[in-house]
Nucleic acid binder design. Structure first.
Lengths: 194, 194, 194, 194
DNA sequence: CATGAATGAGGATTCATTCAT
DNA sequence: AATGAATGAATCCTCATTCAT
């Protein structure tokens, strides 16, 4: 791993373990085994380090999301693969999610950024647009809405897995059901609803 | 409003506008019109202020959630009231949502807290247990799972409303549909599905 | 005990246990069971409280020193009584000595105070002047010098008693010798010295 | 002088002039011509600065004590050299004495420290053990006791010199006598006394 | 007399950033 | 490129003192 990545990974670990607060540059330096001054060769400022880390993680997330995807497959299959890719990513390494949640609710994340081209939102929009166009998903709901909703539910199910995992003696079958429930919610609905 | 609440509200506003960073005690003092030292009469430390603010907001959230609830009503009606109460709460005053998102992903929120008696989780568990017991919700899914899932989706739909609201020129009808979609996902299912 | 004394005693205890630093007025208030404001009815300021405490303790020390003294007795007897009175006082309650040592080496204690009438130094000067005049003590040494020397040695022997007391398995006979050694040093010397 | 020593010396000066109070880090910084933050490169905290200063001074004191010492000399000569070394050290630079007096009577100095290996006490114990073994000092008194006693008396005579020095118009001869008096107290005694 | 909430200047400490080496 | 000592503004917190009740 090159120095720049080492610095970003150290920052990420620090944020996972000690929050956005607990990652002073001095500690980033120590944890990535470089001198404090060296960080400033790779990043103009701490803000820039955080911003680059954000983009680095977005790329990682998109990569994970589309692993094994194939637009020739039935959309339910594609949806399930997406779902499990994301869950795996978030469960295996909590740091990504934790970073993102803090990032989105911090002043680093401005409204402009949201509006601007965003790899991750673009990918999701396209993905769900495919499902709508192929007639396998509900029509009449914008893909942006579907994507935010689905992603929110994935994150929630990650929380369930992580926090309650052992404590609640929850059988895996139940947890697996969540994806089905969500699929039932977004799939093409037969006709009238109660 | 008493001084303690004034301090908490000032902190909350600061966190909304400038994130978990960006609320130095000096600014909390200024925004709540008390001297810096006064804060320490009411809170032992900044950490304690944050923790008390959390509990204060949880109480507010539970209050909002159960507004107009009545266990004699059909569960779909109760669900829709709950849904709209929550959305109203989170959309009208973004500060609660922003605080919570940051809080849950910060070191303030420990695993123990999750496990410990938690007003909000208790309320939600009881609520969804009612729906399961009355046969109006899917059986075979634990109420804890339903509550985390539903709440996660509410938060997501709040994000849609807030961030994309104007930009996307999204008609209100579509947004209203989300609750229906979720209801379709959690309601008693007719029979077997693939 | 009246309120004023209660405040002074609380201050003294605090200084013994936590040093000159660790006695904020708030804690003095708590430990003496009065409100913070009340202290300012009895003392103009913290400085004044410390100064009054000093004078209060000086009086206590003089009282202890002259307990059982009688200028008709042989001076060696008077000296031994004095010695044991002081040791008892300092060993039984370390706070007096600890306060004094810190006081003397703090800015509270000015050179003027040293020069000014000082009950305790006066008492000691008079005491040793008696010994010189009666021919039982060395001549040619000013009583001021004798008194500071003797008192310093008492304090040292208190330190021995307190710190090393148990640890060193020191027989009481040896400790008792110190007064004898000092007496040998200050008593009228026979004639030529080596 | 390196920066670490400059900081310690500035602290010492401040304590001499304004007591253990009266040396805020900001002033230590100013007096040692470094930035406030720099102090924390060399010392973890103010407490650690004080503790290191203590050890630094103990080393200085031991150095001074053994200056010109030679175990081939008669013990009286060694004793007199020791005495005058110490007096010189304490009188020439009052800061060491003032620091020590405050340090020993503050919570910085714990019982454990007293018990623990202590350069200074070790040196004194060895010194007086030599005198006892060579038969030039009283037997039957532990060297620890002799050392505490003698040192206490030196400190007292320093106080005499400093506080009363000019005021009392005390001839140097008298002051010089103190060492003789103490020597008379601790030297091998001719025979039994009442 | 007594209270204790309120004050705000001052103290210890942190931390992003710079710069001589 | 890399270092890490140095900086000093900013932060959290303390505490002597006041004053309305």
């Amino acid at each position: 791993m090159n120095k720049k990545e080492k610095i970003m990974e150290a920052t990420l670990d620090l944020i996972r373990d000690h929050g956005f607060h607990g990652c002073p540059m001095s500690m980033v330096a120590k944890n990535s085994s470089v001198a404090a001054g060296t960080i400033y060769h790779y990043f103009e400022s701490k803000d820039e380090l955080i911003m680059e880390l954000y983009h680095y993680l977005v790329a990682k997330v998109v990569d994970a999301a589309q692993s094994g995807d194939d637009d020739q497959l039935p959309f339910k299959e594609r949806f399930m693969r997406f779902w499990h890719n994301m869950k795996k990513l978030y469960v295996q390494d909590r740091s990504i999610h934790r970073f993102m949640e803090q990032f989105y609710n911090s002043p680093y994340f401005t409204e402009e950024m949201e509006m601007t081209d965003n790899q991750w939102h673009n990918w999701m929009r396209n993905f769900f647009t495919d499902g709508i166009n192929s007639g396998e998903l509900r029509s009449g709901v914008k893909p942006e809405i579907l994507s935010i909703m689905v992603h929110g539910t994935i994150l929630s199910s990650v929380k369930v897995t992580i926090y309650h995992g052992k404590k609640m003696d929850m059988d895996q079958i139940n947890l697996g059901h969540i994806a089905e429930i969500v699929w039932d919610g977004i799939k093409k609905q037969p006709e009238a609803k109660s």
